[in-house]
Structures are given as structure tokens and as C-alpha cells.
Amino acid sequence: MSTPFTHTHAGRAYSGRSNLEGLERAAGAPLVIALHGGTYTSEYFDIPGYSLLDRAADEGVPVIGLDRPNYVGSDPLETDDSIILANAELLGEAIGSIWEQYGDGAPGVVLLGHSIGGAVATAIAASKPSWPLLGLATSGCLVRVPQESRGAWESLPPIPMIDLPVPMKDQVMFGPAGTFGADMPAASHPSNTLVPKVELLDITGGWIERRAEMCAAVEVPVHHRQGEFDALWVTDEGEVDQYRAGFTSAPSVDIDLQRGSGHCIDFHSPGADFQRSQLEFAREVAKAAVA
């Protein structure tokens, strides 16, 4: 299990989880910063039996899972423009400060993001941060959403924070029966939380319109997996091919469907192999950085 993480930068507080306490860092391991999706907290990355932080600790890889603005103990954020780009701007600056404090001789940072967190991580990478970004690993974001999705989010109550009913959330976050263990989805519920409505509208609207521009600006290696049964995105081989083709400036691109999984790959039967592939990617780009 991880331990609570707190950080302050430019007068803003950030909460989260990390595996730094007692970690024996592997030589050359990068610092991984993980960004959760909408309706989840950073605990998404630390559910017992499905914990990326535990798996990374076993391999000597430091991971900090940050709560994005408006989540848990991270300060709130309001904007009249894109909430995803506003997240990216603040978090990009905060990660630079975190790197200075916790880099500890690592060759650089690997950004890892799920769903809306993946979009935020992509926007950070596209901004070409001043700190050493080595690679981008994402999941659960693609090219298009089903036509009914934005209408569904727009029809939610006109309040800033939305508490999605658990049965509704489980239906869209998980694939069909047989793609996850008997303990799921219940085991994932401790990471559930409220989501800013503006995030749901941005990911299904503005982000889709600027997705190609953002992906084309990424100049580091990319690793992405999309659950075969992801109900939140139009998901098939053609869509994955189109998403892959968008990273025109990345030196390497490893993007594919994750068979036998819904939106939250970490919580499905292929989750362990998926996390291992993310960590292998992180180690590989770190090794290349010092070669």
C-alpha cells in the first residue's frame, strides 16, 4: 500500500498517494507521475490487489499518484476555458516542482494518465515542459465518443460537482461479465468520488476538437492501451489506428487495443499485464535517456 502524499507549489496544495516511503529505487528508474480519471481519486492506482504503486515498488520504480485539482485535498480550480488545459497548466508547473524535490537522481519523469487524466497528461506533454519528460503512458481516451454521451452529461443536474450513481458508473467503467474478477467492481469503490461536470463536458467536446493538435505536439515516446469493451469511447481497430496516427512527432508509438477489458483496464483481468507493460515502457524510455 502507498502512503499519503502532499505537495505545495505556487500557493496551491496537491494531495495524492506515493510509494516513496521505504522504496529501494532501482538504478536508472524514472519518476512516474500518475493522473487519475474523472470520478476517481489517486487511490485508483492503489486498490489492493490491483495497485500500480505496489507493483512499481516491487520493481523499484517510484510513483506519485496526484489528485488533480478539485479532487480530495488538491485545491479547486475554476476556468471559463478548457478545464483539461487548465489542469495541464497547473499540474505541469507542480510536477516541475515535484521533480526538483523527489527526482533523486532519476533520469526524468514518465507521465501516466487514465481517461481524463490521460487527456491532461497528453496536454502536459504537448506543452513541452521544462522538466525532463521521458515518455507518456495513457489509457481510456481515444478519438470519438458515442453520440449519446455528451447529451447524457449535459442532462445531469446543473451543479458544479456530480456524484454519479454507483450502478451507472460501474456499467460504463467495466466490461462484460467474465472480463473482471468476482471482487470487482466493488473493490474499486473506495476510489470513487465526485466529478466536476465541466470535465465531463470538456472531454466529450472541446478535448475531442483539439485532440489531433495535442497529440501531434507530443515529442516523447508514447504508450497507450484502449480497453476492447470501453463503453465511453467509440472503440475498434479503426479508431485505435486513427489515434495512433495522430502522434506524428513522437519518436515511437506503442498503441493497441487491450483485449478482454472495459474502460478501467487496471481493474480487469488483463490489469496486471497492462501495468507491467506500462512499467516496462517507463524503464525503457529511462534507459534510452541515459544511453
Rank of each mutant, 00 (worst) to 15 (best):
D75A: 15
F281Q: 08
E280S: 15
H263Y: 05
G37Q: 03
V110H: 03
Y102G: 10
V109M: 06
V120Q: 02
V218I: 12
G262L: 05
D183C: 03
T179P: 01
D104V: 09
S115E: 05
W99S: 08
W207S: 02
C264M: 13
L279C: 10
G103M: 10
T138Y: 00
T41I: 07
R276P: 04
S261D: 10
V110A: 04
G151K: 03
L31T: 08
D230N: 14
L200T: 05
A186N: 08
L23C: 14
P107E: 12
G60L: 12
A186M: 09
G181K: 00
G49C: 09
R12H: 14
D81Y: 10
S188E: 10
A125C: 05
F267H: 08
T39W: 02
G96H: 05
G260A: 03
A10H: 14
I208F: 04
T193P: 02
A86C: 11
A119W: 00
G262F: 03
S82N: 05
T138H: 00
S139I: 00
E59N: 12
S115H: 04
S249I: 06
V120R: 00
L194Q: 11
T3E: 15
A29K: 09
C264N: 10
M161Q: 11
P30S: 12
P48W: 07
G181M: 05
C264F: 02
S51C: 13
V109F: 02
P129W: 03
F247H: 07
L23D: 12
L201V: 08
N192W: 11
S149E: 13
D241F: 07
S269M: 05
N87C: 08
L31N: 05
V218N: 01
I47K: 01
P132A: 06
D254Y: 09
A212G: 05
G28M: 10
G271Q: 07
S2N: 12
E24T: 15
L257K: 02
D183H: 05
Q147A: 15
H36S: 06
T193E: 01
E43Y: 13
I64T: 08
P129D: 08
P107C: 11
I159A: 13
F45R: 01
L112W: 03
Q171D: 14
T138I: 09
E199N: 11
V234L: 15
F247C: 06
L77G: 11
S252P: 11
A34T: 08
S188N: 07
A152E: 13
P221C: 13
A286G: 15
L52T: 07
D183E: 15
P270I: 04
V120H: 00
E154S: 10
A13S: 15
A177P: 02
F180A: 08
L66K: 03
D202F: 12
G260T: 02
G227V: 06
F174N: 03
L91K: 01
Q258H: 00
D241M: 14
A291D: 15
N87E: 11
Q147S: 14
E78N: 10
V72E: 15
G140P: 06
F45P: 00
P165G: 09
R210A: 09
S191K: 04
P196C: 12
D75L: 12
A57Q: 07
N19P: 13
L142M: 10
I84C: 03
D104H: 15
Q242M: 14
V63H: 08
I159F: 08
